[in-house]
Design a binder for these strands. Structure first.
Length: 260
DNA sequence: CTCTGCATATCCCTTACATCA
DNA sequence: GATGATGTAAGGGATATGCAG
């Protein structure tokens, strides 16, 4: 059974090697029909779908049915396996590439989020510092006023105090905008806290006015978070391994661009 | 049982050619 | 019509496996 005049009878010698030599010498096919016919391809494809390797007996049988040499069928299967493998590799590559793209996108989002948090943290630190300085300055002014008053009008003040005992001295009591009370100042005495951070708790209270409890838990979070996020040393676990690598890659030579 | 040479199959890379844009 | 890219049948070397001697 011969299909579409693929090879002349003279080429279909019993010696496959002689046949191949003749085919090659004669430009594969004098009718310029080097390829197998559609029907031959269809049969070969169908067989390949059921088994990618042919048993010798099936190979001979299929070759007889298609009017081909068993060697031609074997070579077709061999080439088909190579094409199939190449296609598989391409598919797997596309899947991996997609996964990589997704991860890279997630990484970029997290990087931006981290940057925003670091900026916010910096802003809060600066605000807190400014507030502390303002309050210290106000305290000094209040102390000066109190000292002057006590020197020049001590007796008068004593009299006033006797006269208006319920009146609150405005310079010694502060009320914040939320109505929280707090006695400010005086580094020489009671308001200066003794805990290890040397930080004035009233200032903390004032700053975190809305909190009922000591906001130490916040400070504990803020400080390490700050150092962790801003110090390249502490951040190195991630930064040196991943960020740096990727940053370097993106700045100098994006290795993934190799594939594109 | 082990070794050796041969035949065969398969993989992998390459070549030659047809086809198409 | 020339040309480069691509697909495909086949060549050929390297290697694995099975078998007889």
């Amino acid at each position: 059974m011969r299909q579409g005049g693929e090879y002349s009878p003279a080429m279909m010698s019993s010696d496959p090697f002689l046949t191949m030599k003749k085919i090659k010498k004669s430009n594969h096919n004098k009718n310029n029909q080097r390829r197998f016919s559609d029907e031959q391809i269809k049969s070969l494809e169908m067989m390949f779908e059921s088994e990618t390797r042919l048993e010798p007996r099936k190979k001979v049988q299929l070759a007889r049915e298609l009017g081909l040499q068993p060697r031609q069928v074997a070579i077709w299967f061999q080439n088909k396996r190579a094409r199939w493998k190449s296609k598989q590799l391409e598919t797997e590559y596309n899947i991996l590439r997609q996964n990589y793209d997704n991860l890279a996108s997630q990484f970029e989002s997290l990087k931006k989020e981290k940057q925003a948090l670091v900026s916010e943290l910096q802003r809060l630190k600066e605000a807190m510092q400014k507030k502390t300085q303002d309050e210290e300055r106000q305290c000094c002014r209040d102390q000066a006023v109190v000292a002057l008053s006590s020197t020049d009008h001590e007796s008068e003040n004593e009299e006033n105090r006797r006269r208006e005992p319920e009146e609150v001295r405005p310079e010694m009591e502060m009320k914040d905008e939320k109505g929280h009370h707090g006695v400010m100042c005086d580094h020489n005495h009671d308001d200066y806290d003794d805990d290890d951070d040397g930080y004035n708790n009233n200032i903390k209270r004032e700053y975190f006015g809305g909190f009922e409890e000591e906001p130490d838990h916040l400070m504990n979070i803020v400080e390490p978070a700050d150092s962790c996020l801003t110090s390249s040393d502490d951040w190195r676990g991630f930064k040196s391994d991943t960020t740096t690598l990727l940053d370097q890659s993106s700045n100098n030579y994006p290795w993934w661009d190799f594939w594109s």
